[in-house]
Design a protein around this nucleic acid. Sequence first.
DNA 1: AGCCTTAGGCTAACGGTGTTAGCTTCACTT
DNA 2: AAGTGAAGCTAACACCGTTAGCCTAAGGCT
Lengths: 193, 193
Amino acid sequence: MADRLSPRARQIVAAARELLEKDGADALTMRRLADRLGIRAPSLYKHFPDKAAVEVELIAEGMEELARALEAAEATGPAKATGPAEAAGRVEAADPADVMAGLGAAYRAYAFAHPHLYRLMSAGPFPRDLLPPGLEDRTAMPLVRVVGDPDRARAAWAFAHGMVMLELDGRFPPGADLGPAWRVGLTALVRPV
Amino acid sequence: MADRLSPRARQIVAAARELLEKDGADALTMRRLADRLGIRAPSLYKHFPDKAAVEVELIAEGMEELARALEAAEATGPAKATGPAEAAGRVEAADPADVMAGLGAAYRAYAFAHPHLYRLMSAGPFPRDLLPPGLEDRTAMPLVRVVGDPDRARAAWAFAHGMVMLELDGRFPPGADLGPAWRVGLTALVRPV
DNA sequence: AGCCTTAGGCTAACGGTGTTAGCTTCACTT
DNA sequence: AAGTGAAGCTAACACCGTTAGCCTAAGGCT
């Protein structure tokens, strides 16, 4: 992901990410991005063909991180499953429901830790062709493994994405506790016994 | 919804809707909107304080229509439930699974019939205070009725919204048949027996 | 009748956006 | 020494939402 970019280009992406994460999508402007690097906006075009290309880099970065977070959650299981009982060598297969809960928590946590990046990653037309091959599948694999078939995985993904977007957009009644909704959705969509 | 708007304002909203539905959100521009009405952009500000106010009107319109579509689906049930057996007077309570399938189909159908309007309605910060009171609840009621508790309704709503957004954004593998994913999600999230 | 207010248009302009054209400058290679 | 490419620069274009200020026609009031 990083190897195909020149060092300067990587600096630009890093600055873009700071800008995006701190001040939101509206703040991610070619002029402001250039400002932060001490250059003028047109100079950015020596490194990227257009703004979308910079954003694609951010999307790839975010997907990579999200994939890692999900893989970690899959390996670990939810926090409470790492209790004293399993402390001395965990060999038995984890309960799918636990894995599912862990994946959901990790997904939600990532989205809320990086709301603007999540929005950029997961909303709007998808630049599939410009992304490193395999990244998309990698992000999806943990979910597919735990729920079994692809259709169920898609349903679960849609649920998680929908919950995050509705939460981020303040679409649920203000002040509502959404823990139960997450729990209901995740347990309903795990692999059926 | 329409009564608080002057006739001219209603014309503007109508033109805005045509623009949005035909050419997408990027085409909904104050200058282009004015063009379509034979006036200049600044004149629009005699009728609306800003562009967001026009969009709020469109959002209200869309939510109203979606609410109607869902209410109709709730009353009718899915197409196949209106078969010969029920033709002569339907009194028995409909199967929740059927109602759920009908609601899902109606939701999906509305979103795909008006993709740009759906996006405007359902993505981005929600102007709750500027919308006609009760409209939000009205849209949600059919779903709440069929699934029983609010948490389950939120989960189901998130699922449907997520499916639509992922579909609209081309996030699923190209060419994938998403019927099964919809079916799995909807049946998993109806009220449990 | 005459006046005055208001609705609803207009032009000009501001600051912001992404982007292009064309110039320069500097380092490195031949 | 000459030449070349990378990476900066300024100026500018077309577009965006929005504001200020002007004008004109219609309607109500004295």
